[in-house]
Amino acid sequence: MADKLHVDIVTVEGRRFRGDADFVVAPGSEGELGVLPRHIPLLTPLAPGSVRVRNDGEEQLFFVSGGFLEVRPDQVTVLADSAERADDIDEARAEEARHRAESLLQQKLSDADQAAASAALARAEARLRLAELRRRRRV
């Protein structure tokens, strides 16, 4: 049997693909890369594009929006960013999160609210102590 590459395509949310391949093509940040078995170890960021996994004449396509390609002689791992990922969208959403916090801060809090807050905490703590006591009594 000819050499095969073990291919893993993973994202932080889970594994997208695992299987053998004769040949893998990936969109490296410095240009498209073709990987055959017994390739030298390589680590490179990925540009948005498609990863092609060819095995026994059949080809599978995966879209990645970025990430990293890690190559070992018998193994190819694609650490892919999630497909929805786009830095400009992230910035906009980060700004939104900041605004939300600011507008929350600007809403003035009355003494009554403060009192309600500490009362709520005190209640919660009392409940905790009670639960603790009850647990001990049962043992």
């Binding site: 999630s82 929805e84 990922r85 992230d90 959403r93 980060a94 916090a101 929350l104 807050a117 500490s118």
Partner: peptide, 28 residues
């Protein structure tokens, strides 16, 4: 917020199936 500690960003309502993109704003 009630006790007045400065909060510079917040993310909530990420649900019971949070995805990376839901929390990225806070990390960014």
């Amino acid at each position: 917020r009630r006790i007045g500690v400065p909060i510079i960003a917040e993310v909530s309502q990420t649900g019971d199936r949070p995805e990376l993109k839901d929390i990225l704003p806070a990390v960014t």
